[in-house]
C-alpha cells in the first residue's frame, strides 16, 4: 500500500534533512575560534542591559486571537468550497450568512479599537 502520504513523508524528511546536512557539513569545514567579544550579543555595539526576554504588549495576542478565529472559519469553509459546484443557491447563501457573522466579529474588533497598533 503506497499512498501519496508516504511519498509526502519521504519528501518532507528529505526537505528537512538536506539543509540540516548542509549546515552540519559547513560546521565541520568552517573554522571554530570563539572568543567572548565575538560571541557577545550584537546590540549595535552597546553592552546589552538586562535579559533579552522582554515583555510584549497585548496587541500581539489580540491579533493572534483574531487570526485564530478567521483560521477556524476558513477551515470550516474549505469543505463548503469543495462542494460549491454541487450546491444550490440556498447552500451558498447559508455560507454567506456564516461569513457575514464573522464580518460582524471583525467590525466589533474594529469598533473596540482592537485593530489599532499603538
Amino acid at each position: 500500500m503506497f499512498t501519496d502520504w508516504i511519498y509526502l513523508g519521504i519528501f518532507l524528511v528529505i526537505a528537512f534533512a538536506l539543509p540540516l546536512a548542509a549546515i552540519t557539513f559547513a560546521g565541520v569545514i568552517s573554522p571554530k575560534k570563539p572568543n567572548p567579544i565575538k560571541d557577545s550579543i550584537y546590540e549595535c555595539g552597546i553592552e546589552p542591559i538586562g535579559e533579552s526576554r522582554i515583555q510584549f504588549k497585548v496587541q500581539y495576542y489580540v491579533y493572534g486571537l483574531i487570526f485564530l478565529v478567521f483560521d477556524v472559519e476558513t477551515v470550516l469553509l474549505f469543505p463548503w468550497a469543495v462542494a460549491y459546484n454541487q450546491l444550490t443557491l440556498f447552500g451558498v447563501l447559508e455560507a454567506v450568512l456564516f461569513i457575514a457573522i464573522l464580518a460582524a466579529a471583525l467590525i466589533y474588533a474594529w469598533r473596540k479599537g482592537a485593530l489599532e497598533w499603538l
Binding site: 528537512f16 557539513f25 559547513a26 560546521g27 568552517s30 573554522p31 560571541d39 557577545s40 550584537y42
Partner: peptide, 21 residues
C-alpha cells in the same frame, strides 16, 4: 560554507540551531 558559526552567549541551543532548518 567556509564561514565560522558564531553562536551568541546565552543562546538557547536547540531552537537556535533548528530555526534555519
Amino acid at each position: 560554507f567556509t564561514k565560522e558559526y558564531i553562536t551568541p552567549t546565552g543562546a538557547d541551543k536547540i531552537p537556535y540551531n533548528l530555526a534555519p532548518v
